[in-house]
Each structure stands twice: as C-alpha cells, then as structure tokens.
Design a protein around this nucleic acid. Structure first.
Lengths: 345, 345
DNA sequence: TAAACTTATTAAAGGCCTTTAATAAGTTTA
DNA sequence: TAAACTTATTAAAGGCCTTTAATAAGTTTA
C-alpha cells in the first residue's frame, strides 16, 4: 500500500518518454491529452529535455485551422542499454538504443566459471567506458533469480545467492536488472508482438535438462513459490509416465526436432492441461524444435481433450531473438524510469 | 501507462483509511511515517474526517518523553457494505461494516429465474433504504464475469451479457462489484489468512457440474483467455481418463466426501500438475469435501510425482465463509477507494 | 486584403502539499 | 521546582502543478 508521491517529476518524465517512443512523435497538446498532465507542465519538461538533447524538434505540423503546432520526437540514441547473455559456452552482449536498434554486438568467453565474475566485471567496465551513453545493464542467466540475486542455478553453485544486481549497481552507478532466460524470452515475446490486455502466454522449450516452460499471466512473469513454476517435465500424463518420460519414450539419444506421434500426444496433453488450468491466449514453441506442419497436428490432438474454442493460439517463435527482446525491454524500462540517483552528469 | 494525478486527494484518503483499519489505531506521526505524507497534510485530513465522524479520537498515548500524542481509530460503522450471493435455490445477503463484522444477514428466494432481476432490484432497494450507511454492493454469481458483466452463466442464459455493475451503479449511485463465486472465495481466503507477498493460491471444489478450481497468481485472480481457467475437469491424467473421469470412475451416484484410493491418486496428480506448472504456495480444499486425514494421503501421493520441497501447503477451509470474506473485501476496497461521484451527502 | 475566427503557446493567479520555523505540552535532571 | 530537554502540533513560507487569461500565429471569409 506504499505510494511514493515524491516521484511525481519522474512519473511525468517517464510518461513523456514512453509516449514519444510509442507514438513516434507528438505535439505538446497530444502529450498533455494522452498523459492527463497540463499543457504548461508538459511545456516546461519538453523545453528542458530539448536543451539536454533528449528530444528533437521535427518541424511544424500542417495547420488544422490555426497556429501550427511544433512536433517533437525522442532521440533514441540519448541513452543506450547493455544486454548480456550468460551461457554455458559463451557470453554474448548487445548494445541497443531506446528504439530497440542494436548498435553493437559481440561475444566473449563464458563467465560461468570459477573466476568468471572478474572477467564479466572487466568486460562490462570496458564496454561502459567505450559507450558513455549506456544507462542500463540487463543480464540474462540460466537460473532462478529473485530480486536481482541468483537463487538457484544448477551446475554453477559458486553463484548461489550472489546479488548480481546490487554488486553492479554499486560498482557502476547504473540501474541493473537480472532475469532468468526463459522469463526474459516470454517477456520479449510479449513486448515484441505487442500483446495487449495482458493476455497470458506460455513459452515451451526443450532445455538440456529436460523440457521447461515460461509463463506470463495477467502481465506478470510467474516464478512460483519455490521457483519451480514451469518445470513441466513433472506433469503426470499417462498411467505410468510424466511429460518428460513421454517425450523421451523410446529414444535413447536426444533429438532436437519433435516429430513422433507419441510426442505429439504428450505435447497436446500438456497444452490441454495448461489450458484447463490457466487458459492462456498463446502457446509458443521454439522454431528450431517444432516445425510448422507439426503445429496443426498438435492443435488437432489437443482438441480431443479440450473444447477447441478454448484452446490457445499455437505460435512458433525465435527463442534467441525473444530473449534479446526481453532483456532489451527490461533495460529500456530501467532507463525510462531511472531514478535520479543513477543519472550521470 | 495511464496515471491519474488528479486523485491525489483520494489516494491520501484511502491510505489513511486502510492504515487505520490495518493498524487498529494510529497517531498522526505514525500515519505520516507509514504513508510518506507530510504531517500537516495528514493533520488536515484527520481533522476533516473527525468532523465527519469517520474517525474517532481514542485518547492520548503515554508520553514517550515529550508531549503526549493523540491516538485515532477508524469508525467501522461509518460505512457499511452489502454482499449478495446469488445461488440456484436461494439468495443470501449480508450487511457488514469496515471491520468485517456482519451486522445483518438474511435469505430471500432465488433470483436466478426469468423475472428474478425485478425481485433482486426491489430487495436491494429495500435494504439500502433501511440502511443509509451502505456504500458498496458486492454481488457473487455462479458464472463468468467480465468487468461487472455476466459473460457466461451455464443454465441461466437470460443473464448472458447483462451488465449488472453498470445497471445498479446507475440505479443506486453506489459502487458495485460483481464476481464469480470461486474467484471471490480464493480472494477471501487470501485476505482472511493474510497471505503475504502475493503468494499464489489454488482453491479446489466439486461443483454440481464437476470439479473446478479458482486460482490466484501474483495477487491477481486468473480468469483465462476465454474464461476457461480452472476447468480442471479436463486435465488428462491417465491413458484414457481425465481428472473428472478419474474422480467419478466406478461411482454411479455422486458422493460428497472424497475417500477412495483412485480418487486420492487423481487429486494428487492434479496437485502435481498444478505444482509443475505454476508452483503455488497453498492448495485449498473444501472442508465438507475432504477430511483432515485425507490431506496426508494426498500429500504422500503427490510426492511420488514431484520433489516434496516444491509441493504446496495443503489446507482445508470453509468455502461459504471464504466466499463471504471475498465479497466483503471486494466491497471494502470499493468503499475505501470510492470515487467522489458516489459519495452521498 | 482586412476582419473574424482557430489553434498553439506563454504568462499570471490559485490550489495543494512539503519543508521549515515557531509554539505547545509534556518529562527529566540538577 | 525551575531549567533543560523531548516530542506533538500549529503556523508560515516555498515549490510545483493546474486553471484561467493573455498573446502569438496561423487560416478563412466577406
């Protein structure tokens, strides 16, 4: 129930930023109407932002019968974000601007090692020095995260309980967000596809440690009481097999592509279970795991279990791309709302 | 992204109300600290509220080394709420105050009939006339509700698409909330047990139309894309049976109490599925459907499917009572935040 | 083409909350 | 028991956003 009336100024600022980025461009009247903030206030903020180079004037509108209005756009390069993807075999990074354009991309060796933190720190430092406009840091990790702290990352126990967010915020005076890879991907899909009204999503993938899923319900990522949400391997599906066993049944080695009929039935049962429980709007598969023709088979098989009108849209998407989008949108949110303490002169 | 800076006054008012009810009583300094609102502002609001009879002075605190502070309490009878439960065979109502105490309770004949709306309207009117302090109306219905409008209520098609909220708000100039019975119950459990941190809940019940469940995830009730969320009957559980079929298997007539071993396995599989998907904190059964000893059997059976440390707390609760609590807390929220337009002089 | 009319922008006045200073009302200590 | 000290409350001054009035800069019409 805690509210912070102090931050009215920041609220207005982030409202203006978001609106300009959303709309592409706007006049003072348009911003005032959209945000419900008076014209003089908008005017005051815009003139300061123009002085700072945060917004640009893009000329005058055609007259609508009276004085022509000035039109403004957001300068997408005013602030940049740095996204870092920690993976087993390598570490990728991307520097992006407020319009979501990637300005620079690269790979360094994996930091998920014993002395990895030092390498990660020095790499970030170098990137920050070379790009003074960077104002946010988003880090994706293959593990559970709670308030920026690694909660559980199987295989990398040395990171257990490490407060990545706090560490880097202190070190670099820059807002930091840390998120699980799957949650970032479902978030990225949500933003990039411009899902409206907080429609619920499920993102299914086959990880090295068996299948898992990311959930977004009512606009929030679902983590679960013990961060076990999405461990759909364990869903009991047949008399004597759970989802994971049903998927693997009969195959000794792991195939990437899903194709056999018993696998189709297992997946359609999972779709049915999830539909009967949370009734999501869209169910997303990874494009390197599921082929287009398979989608129809899964849809047909699912409707044996659930009235078809309640089944979700089955979609195929690019997991890596969605992961990047997710870290971008988390970083963007930090930049647009960044509290004063982090603003560098 | 829409914010309403106009309502700062209402924000302060509802903050003060909630704090006084939460804490039982408070001084001006305590309120100012808790709400982050300056002392003079708190002081201004409190003196007006005391004039109105909305708060009461409960004397002076012991001195903590200086001038003794005045202590205030909320007058719980300043506003009352009316909760109405529409059921197949009868209609129950309860009038409650801001402390959640039921002041009056009663039953009228069912209004889920062809001419039921007139009866409901005249009954509410009579109750409002007799109790001028009523400032909110909460209506529970056995069907899907979307923004106060009946979306789907099997068996009562005459109510399809009827905007109950809009109708009564117009008619009586009083804020109205309409909610599905199961959602209200899970909400009521959430509030009455003072579940913290938005821990997720599942409420399982055996309705006349087969079993169903209510979900609360991250503090929000889950409705689903086509309002199908919670229709756990359809969860595929065995080679050739879904949850409903597994529960009924072998019984021709319906028993209220759950007891047989195959039923225990079906329920534990449902607990396992839901845990692997959303990993809730608590799983609630109805006390007239499940006996205490059965809980342990279910817990033991579930841990065959899921590592026990991730299993939810299994709880037994009184559905009717939780339903009432749910409608009460919905009504209370309306009263505490009620917009000016509804305030009667 | 100048008067009438629109619409955008700037300036002035007002409202409301916060910060700071002054006062009130206690308790503790020499 | 009066001076010193605490804490609550009230009063005054200041900041910030909104509302309203005035001005600027166009277009349309007679």
């Amino acid at each position: 129930m805690k509210t912070a009336p102090k931050s009215l100024k920041l609220l207005i600022l982030s409202g203006i930023r978001r609106s300009l980025l959303d709309l592409g461009s706007a006049t003072k009247v348009e911003l005032s109407d959209k945000l419900g903030i008076s014209f003089p206030t908008i005017s005051k903020f815009l003139s300061q932002m123009e002085k700072d180079g945060e917004i640009l004037s893009s000329g005058l509108d055609e007259s609508s019968g009276g004085r022509r209005a000035k039109r403004y756009t957001y300068n997408p390069d005013y602030m940049l974000g740095l996204a870092i993807f920690l993976e087993k075999t390598e570490t990728n990074y991307a520097i992006f601007n407020c319009a979501g354009e990637v300005k620079e991309q690269g790979t360094i060796q994996s930091v998920l090692t014993d002395s990895g933190m030092h390498l990660l720190t020095s790499s970030i430092e170098a990137l920050l020095m070379a790009n003074q406009a960077i104002r946010s840091l988003s880090i994706g990790v293959p593990g559970s995260v709670k308030n920026g702290r690694i909660f559980y990352m199987p295989g990398y126990e040395q990171f257990q309980d490490f407060d990545i967010k706090g560490y880097f915020e202190n070190l670099f005076s820059i807002p930091v967000v840390v998120e699980n890879d799957m949650n970032a991907a479902v978030l990225g899909y949500h933003h990039s596809k411009e899902i409206k009204n907080h429609q619920s999503l499920v993102y299914l993938y086959s990880g090295q440690n068996g299948p898992g899923a990311g959930f977004m319900i009512n606009g929030d990522v679902v983590r679960g009481n013990t961060f076990f949400a999405g461990e759909v391997s364990f869903v009991p599906q047949y008399d004597d097999r759970n989802f994971r066993e049903a998927l693997e049944n009969g195959t000794s080695h792991k195939e990437v592509l899903i194709s056999r009929d018993n696998q189709v039935d297992a997946i359609s049962r999972l779709v049915a279970s999830i539909t009967a429980i949370i009734n999501p709007h869209t169910f997303i598969f990874c494009k390197d795991e599921v082929e287009g023709t398979l989608i129809e088979k899964i849809a047909a098989a699912s409707s044996k279990y659930i009235p078809p009108e309640h089944l979700p849209v089955l979609a195929i998407s690019d997991w890596k791309q969605d992961y990047l989008y997710g870290l971008q949108s988390l970083g963007l949110a930090l930049m647009l709302d960044s509290p004063e303490k982090f603003i560098r002169k």
